[in-house]
Design a protein around this nucleic acid. Structure first.
Length: 281
DNA sequence: AAGAGACCCTGGATGC
DNA sequence: TGCATCCAGGGTCTCT
């Protein structure tokens, strides 16, 4: 489940490997993963274009192409972007055999970029402006614009419980199930607290926690629980550093109390019942 | 506005 | 061992 740190890692790797590369052709094997335009049109549009830049917005990878087009990729649960060597036809198992490789970008250099996705939730978009897709995303959690005060103001305007609210990409862009639980634990705030009840001090703690947790995870190249890989096939390392996510019954690293799991808004939620008290101050 | 539930998918885990 | 069923989960949608 790639979230901000995983997508950031992927974008950085792709940027280092792909800027300046020219696309020879594109093969779409599973058309339904192309959100826009049609799969045929999508494949057509890439031929001859150069990769100018690769970046990230929220959980989207954004690839800037020559002649003003943008490829946006959302990996959802199990999506991967994997670099392969396709210079010798038939040598890459990923390309020839893998049943989960749905789109392949062949570069004239002999490199190839494969979009792979077992659960088929991921989507690719080819647009004239990224804003067509990412226009209504909230601020980037790591940007200077998101001050503690700004986060306090954002939260004050909502009565929802924190867990589902922080997962709403229109509030903040890039947080998902793992890092929300980790950040709330770090900030010692209960996931079911109602957003508008947070004090200035608590919002500031959450602000610090979100940024600390995300930065640390980026340093560790992301969290690999099962599917996530960097474009070079490497595993992330942050799973070792998780405090609560997926750890029900294990002792809280801060106080030793067993970690509890609850389903909130249909999503598994892990927290420490002792460090993260529910009473609203 | 908030919350619940369905849906999209498949592989791994669980149950008999 | 073998088969059926359950489950996870980001985002989007519908219904209450």
């Amino acid at each position: 489940m790639p979230e901000l740190p995983e997508v950031e890692t992927i974008a950085r790797h792709l940027k280092a490997q792909l800027v300046g590369q020219y696309i020879g052709q594109v093969e779409v094997r599973w058309p339904r993963c192309i959100a826009t335009p049609t799969a045929t049109q999508f494949a057509h549009e890439f031929v001859g274009r150069e990769i100018l830049d690769v970046g990230r917005r929220g959980k989207f990878v954004i690839v800037s192409l020559s002649e003003s087009k943008f490829l946006l990729v959302h990996l959802r649960m199990t999506g991967r972007l994997i670099l392969e060597d396709a210079s010798h036809p038939g040598t890459s198992e990923e390309i020839t055999l893998d049943p989960h490789t749905h789109v392949i970008f062949y570069f004239v250099s002999g490199k190839a970029l494969c979009f792979r996705d077992t659960r088929k939730f991921g989507r690719l978009y080819l647009v004239n402006e990224p804003a067509e897709i990412v226009g209504d995303l909230g601020p980037e959690p790591l940007s200077d614009d998101l001050t503690p005060q700004a986060l306090y103001e954002l939260l004050r305007g909502h009565r929802k419980r924190l867990k589902p609210l922080l997962a709403d990409q229109r509030l903040l862009a890039g947080l998902g199930n793992i890092y929300i639980d980790e950040a709330l634990w770090e900030a010692r705030i209960h996931p079911l607290r109602h957003a508008h009840t947070l004090s200035v001090e608590e919002a500031a703690r959450l602000h610090t926690a979100i940024r600390t947790v995300l930065s640390r995870a980026i340093k560790n190249l992301g969290t690999t629980l099962r599917d996530y890989r960097t474009p070079l096939g490497e595993l992330g390392e942050h799973q070792e550093a998780l405090a609560v996510y997926g750890r029900q019954g294990e002792p809280c690293p801060r106080c030793g109390e067993p970690i509890r799991r609850e389903v909130v808004g249909g999503r598994g939620t892990w927290y420490c019942p002792s460090c993260q008290r529910r009473n609203e101050s």
